[in-house]
């Protein structure tokens, strides 16, 4: 599915996107996309939640921390939430989170919110494809590797300081 040219360029790396889809709209739309045999990038893996309002900011942060290159959230269109207004609650939370992520140096294209109704199978396809390409262009985020590196750097720093202190007291 993904172009082989890309794969060679990025050394076999493929973007990994964790998608949180609301049971009533986007998840159903993804189902529809499947039933309609629409082909989309295989890079997004879906986690079902009952409502986009269930999206705990921790889920997003955790996904990045555990190696996701992007996080996609799909919910019902404004006014259409199965639970009335869970998507508005999600929207507020997500907007806030998006600002935080930017401050943490995570590019805004890596965290995307899209309203997709149950009948919009086509939109699931285009959203996933577009997001995959954007994240591909950004390259791997690789937080787990960075954490390891940061840990090593911290260890090194600690050793250096300890050595310096020892030298001082000697």
């Amino acid at each position: 599915m993904a172009s082989t040219g890309m794969k060679q360029e990025t050394n076999g790396w493929e973007p990994r996107i964790v998608a949180f889809f609301c049971n009533w709209c986007t998840y159903t739309a993804a189902d529809l996309a499947g039933v309609s045999r629409l082909r989309h990038a295989p890079n997004a893996r879906v986690i079902r939640v009952m409502c986009s309002g269930r999206l705990d900011p921790q889920f997003v942060l955790e996904a990045f921390a555990r190696g996701a290159d992007g996080v996609l959230v799909g919910g019902c269109h404004p006014g259409d939430c199965h639970y009335m207004e869970g998507n508005y609650k999600a929207l507020r939370r997500i907007r806030f989170l998006q600002r935080m992520m930017k401050d943490m140096g995570i590019h805004e294209d890596r965290f995307h919110l899209e309203w997709i109704s149950a009948s919009e199978g086509e939109k699931v396809k285009t959203t996933i494809n577009e997001m995959t390409e954007k994240v591909r262009a950004l390259g791997p985020l690789g937080l787990p590797e960075r954490f390891v590196k940061w840990d090593e750097e911290m260890d090194e720093l600690e050793h250096t300081i300890a050595a310096q202190e020892e030298a001082l007291h000697a």
Binding site: M1, R16, P42, R45, V49, R54, D56, A63
Partner: peptide, 28 residues
């Protein structure tokens, strides 16, 4: 907490999805 959608369950899902991070290039 929510029955059937406990935080732990969703965290394990995230974990599961990202387990084979290195070998994702075979999709399609």
């Amino acid at each position: 907490r929510q029955n059937l959608f406990e935080d732990e369950q969703i965290f394990s899902e995230i974990d599961g999805l990202l387990q084979d991070r290195e070998s994702v290039s075979t999709g399609g």
